[in-house]
Design a protein around this nucleic acid. Sequence first.
RNA 1: GGCCCCGUCGUCUAGAGGCCUAGGACGCCGCCCUCUCAAGGCGGUAGCGUGGGUUCAAAUCCCAUCGGGGCUACCA
Length: 481
Amino acid sequence: MTVRVRFAPSPTGYLHVGAARTALYNYLFARANDGVFILRSDDTDTARSTEEYQEDILEHMEWLGLEWDEGIVIGGEHGSYRQSDRYDRYREVARDLIESDSAYYSFATPDQLEQFRKDARDAGTSPAYDGSLEPGYGEVAGRVAAGESAVIRFRVPRPGETRFTDIVREDMVFDHKQVDDFVILRSDGSPTYHLASTVDDVDYGITHVIRGEDLLSSTPKHILLAQAMGAEPATYAHLSLLMGPDGKKLSKRHGDTAMSAYREMGVLPEAINNYLALLGWSLGDEEDVASIDEMISRFDLTTVSKNPAVFDPQKLEWLNGVYIRGMSDDEFVASTLLLVEEDLGRTLSADEREQFMEMVPLIKERTKLLPEVSDQVRFLFTNIDKYDEKSWSKVMDTPEALVALDAALAALTPLDEWTIESIESALRQMLVDTGLNARKGFQPVRVAISGSTVSPPLFESLAILGKLETLTRISNARALL
RNA sequence: GGCCCCGUCGUCUAGAGGCCUAGGACGCCGCCCUCUCAAGGCGGUAGCGUGGGUUCAAAUCCCAUCGGGGCUACCA
């Protein structure tokens, strides 16, 4: 049987990193098993769902490269894959369930329900509603016909229990005392998540449901529902939740949870995929870096960790650096040129672009987040109108600075050939002549041309900057001493 | 409160009775390299929540306990 899995976010928020991890695991599982990966929109919460969130989810799924084989946008044999288009189907199932007595009209009011739960809590028993507040069979038809507001609830068999084997949690048992007669159709005729999601899983032939652990306790409902529909329930796999540094479910108060935020801060999709995969799963050997293809070839749901995982932005950044260093120069330029231009507020001329390309090998290995590139190359394309204060006071307010700048000027001015080699030998000779060590001799030059004590390698920077500009900047700084 | 899940370095994890004086990765610290910052190399720091068992032997099995988390809606 072909493996069919789905990622079914509800568009009530942007794509969350935790959801992205769930999507990734579904994707890896599908690809590892030559299965089908489906993207569905569980948008039964009409009050909170928006098209904007839907777009955000789609955009970032594409950005991550998590291509789906069937689903929203691209379609498939099951229609639009949006639950909001399938209300008729859900109502039909609800009717069938009433017909087969697996569900019933419920007239219990919110107040009654609340009292029921409060009593149960006080008594120390299960607060799951068991249908005990409902009228006898005889009354129901009349009250429904009279137009009385009612929801449709699933009739959970009592006594009873539901057992299933979760791929990551293994054997699970839930006593039906703990499972309430849950609402499947609201009084306004709309389906709840439990109904819509399960009907879709059944109709779409989903074989494995891989989702967050927050749905673990709801699983008996979904299994019972599927069985009542006469279907074979899917196999379930519940992934642990992503936590913030405080050990609580990852949320906005821990910082960025939107995928878009990571994209904007310059994280590569390869890096976040790799990182997210590591959160709950390990490659098995002593390596943490793996391409999506390597992950696919090694992915095994049964080895996924049960433990909740704390999201660690530092490790993500490290991984991002690894991937950035692994880019070709062309790829690097392609993904950073725009950022540099945005930072400058103008486009680069052909010559400047040439300078940028020369600088690429030097800055690539110093970059963890894409936008940092702007900081590293800005000095090439703008005049130094202000020097970094700390840098200035640290190296320029010293007696050696004057000596160094004068000597550098004298050493560089006569150079006919302006290459990395000629610059280096001239400056090294300058060190010998002045008796300054490399640090004392070079740092003032660095600050003079870049404005900071931190810059790409000096000789290369001077070479790329050009002779005229270099001499001008050194003179300018010299004048300020 | 009820039910469920989880518990190895700060963090992510390897570990499925002897291979563990617990391995790797990130972080952190130090050293090396070195024109700064990175990168890289080398080394170091730090952990089996606790208490009982079972066993010749337990991080691995059992019980208890403690701790953390999730669910408990006409949200998903």
